[in-house]
């Protein structure tokens, strides 16, 4: 009748993998953030897919949409903090290349 669940989950999974690919290959901090956003949005899409196709009464449905709303807020917050970190990083080190910010190294 309408969009098949498989398509939705497939798109969500593909986006998720794409985001992960971005996270593990990119070196620009802003691109890293954008990749994380793609991953988050893949997850939100997944929630909405199951909100549309509730697996059982009480699961999915409107609760799925509620969780999605909360996630949207969370992801937006994360972008804001991430950009603040980008600014701080740029100010302190003059670069936003994560390959140069290697303080985590022992």
């Amino acid at each position: 009748m309408s969009i098949p669940l498989v398509d939705l989950l497939g798109l969500s999974g593909g986006l998720f993998a794409l985001g992960i690919f971005g996270i593990i290959t990119r070196r620009n901090f802003i691109l890293l953030l954008i990749s994380v956003e793609i991953v988050m949005n893949a997850a939100i899409l997944n929630f909405l897919a199951f909100a549309y196709y509730p697996p059982a009464p009480g699961l999915g449905g409107v609760t799925g949409q509620s969780v999605a709303v909360v996630l949207v807020g969370l992801a937006a917050t994360e972008v804001a903090v991430g950009l603040a970190i980008v600014l701080a990083l740029n100010r302190l080190r003059g670069t936003i290349n994560v390959a140069e910010a290697i303080q985590l190294k022992l």
Partner: peptide, 9 residues
């Protein structure tokens, strides 16, 4: 350990 976050990820 390279210290690069992406590698950890």
């Amino acid at each position: 350990q390279t210290g690069i976050v992406s590698n950890y990820a």
